[in-house]
Amino acid sequence: MRHTLTLLLGGPLLVLALAIPLFVTDSYILHSIAMVLFFAYMASSWNFVCGYVGQLSLGHSAFAGVAGYVTVLLFTQLGVTPWLGMLAGGAFAALLSVPVGYATFRLKGPYFTLTTIAFAEILRIWLENTDDFLGIPLKGAQGLTVPPVGGSSFLAFQFDGKVPYYYIILAMLVGVMAATALMERSRLGFYLKAIRGDRDGAEALGVDPTRYSLTALAISAFLTGLGGAYYAQLFRYINPERNMGIDLSIDMAIMTIVGGQGTILGPTLGALLLHPIGEMVRATIGGSFLGLHLILYGLMLILAVIYFPKGIIVPLQRLLDGRARKSASRKAAAKTDALEGKGQ
């Protein structure tokens, strides 16, 4: 049933997403839609570990930031193409995630959450106060800019219009969903769900919770890192506050939780719902009211936790299931009618 829903919703959405640049020419709107996809991607990457293990990490922005810095520095200092830089950054984030995860996955609930915040904040504060690290110009709170190469250059990850950026993030989003779907059916997916359900029980059955949580975290950190690198390239600018502040982590977590954690489509649904609200508020009345969109995020989070603890994907699923069941029973009824008709 879950996969029918993924296909039923995901298929048309993908077709729509592919076609959008054909009829949306306004670059601001296209940029906004690309940002929705970006947040859907980030939330999905977060979901890859947190949604399935059932732990709330608010430190994922560190992976995004670190990978972004690696990408930008490799490009500006050594001239390495951001495409490779992205992979290097993702790998670096995955590497970083192993000691962090090893330390934190022994903790539960709020302990885990606050420790992930502590890790991310240490990294952010250190970056903000470090202008130069072993000869690498980090430039502290000021951040780094990516110098424009002039015009579009695929190798430099710089394009004139928004369309290439749009398709890149769309491809990344499809990629992370495919990875999640694969993981769900793999041994890793079953182990993670077992750990989420009953950690001690899983351990008693021979599933090593730390090992499998760490594997998932490393993959999640890698994916988050790719997203962080993309973010830095899109704006050609990176700084500790924006690219690795706690706000980014909170966005990823809220979108996933509101959408439905531990599902393939949930995080994207959450991003589709929340980001446009945030963007609209910012564009219309938000200019004079700083932070209004975050108030709405907070309210949505509260409402979701109270009314849809498993995310808005659940009522949606129920709706579709109900319809499927109705049509199935109608078909069955028709069949019996036909049979009875024959019998007479």
Binding site: G109, I257, I295, G298, L299, L301, I302, V305
Partner: peptide, 14 residues
Amino acid sequence: PTSALLLTAGVYLV
């Protein structure tokens, strides 16, 4: 287990 934390995180944002 994390619901209460999430809920109060929502309050924090608001």
